[in-house]
């Protein structure tokens, strides 16, 4: 079992603890939890990301896109992921958080102003097939729960490719656009599973194609993975990824 509960929710946490206690058992002997931290608590993203370079990057052996421009998390308090219905996330992603939100191709280090928050874009290569947004936020000492991430990347196609599909997994909900058009929506309290949601047949232009995504998460882990599949369900080959 695992409650996805955020520290935003002390009240609920208290209720749960009380509930367990009422059942006649000391559920969480929190005080006894004395295991030592093995991980590096001096926060860094270095274990998960490297700064993107100008060197062309190809998708990994299975076609996953590992180079992304990631915006530091926007605060979006949510006590649970079960509220992420299609309507909710459409509305959440229709909302303008920063200027040129749906058109911007930012540069590494660019800033975006979102309400009171000033957030920075980071051009990164993920060391994993997936992009661990939780680790990105945690490593940068940013909020990890109740957050909304924006991600942008550029896929260069050597020729026009018809009938390809964008295959996505995300934790939790997310929405994705290819060249400004909505390509996929992932609603609900989701785990990141490769090829969980797959777009309808799309066309990759010859040359640059801009992929934009937004991931929203209340409590728990947040991450995503994206790749392109051909008509036979095989990863599309021959693409390069850049961030400009």
């Amino acid at each position: 079992m695992n409650f996805k509960r955020t520290t935003l929710l002390l009240a609920v946490g208290f209720l749960i603890s009380t509930g367990l206690l009422l059942q006649g058992c000391s559920a969480t002997s929190k005080g006894k939890t004395n295991s030592t931290s093995k991980a590096d608590t001096a926060r860094s993203i270095a274990a998960y990301f490297t700064p993107a370079t100008a060197k062309p990057k190809t998708p990994d052996a299975e076609g996953f896109l590992q180079r992304w421009l990631l915006l530091e998390p926007i605060n979006k308090p949510n006590r649970t992921n079960t509220v992420f219905t299609d309507s909710y996330i459409r509305h959440a992603f229709d909302t303008l958080y920063f200027s040129n939100q749906f058109t911007i191709l930012p540069k590494d280090g660019d800033k975006a102003k979102v309400g009171e928050q000033e957030l920075t874009w980071h051009a990164l290569d993920s060391k994993n097939f997936n992009v661990k947004l939780f680790r990105f936020a945690y490593g940068l000492n940013k909020p990890v729960y109740g957050v909304l991430f924006w991600a942008v990347t550029v896929v260069n196609s050597p020729q026009e490719m018809k009938d390809v599909r964008m295959a996505i997994g995300s934790n939790s909900a997310s929405m994705w656009w290819l060249n400004g058009k909505e390509a996929a929506i992932l609603s609900g309290d989701r785990r990141m599973v490769m090829d969980d949601v797959v777009s309808t047949r799309l066309t990759l232009n010859k040359g640059k194609n801009i992929i934009r995504g937004a991931v929203i998460n209340g409590p728990g882990m947040s991450d995503f993975c994206v790749r392109f599949l051909d008509e036979k369900g095989q990863p599309v080959k021959g693409l390069t990824i850049s961030y400009e």
Binding site: M1, N2, F3, R5, I16, L20, T28, K30, T33, G220
Partner: peptide
């Protein structure tokens, strides 16, 4: 011994 997020 813990509850998986139970202790926060």
């Amino acid at each position: 011994a813990t509850g998986g997020g139970l202790g926060g």
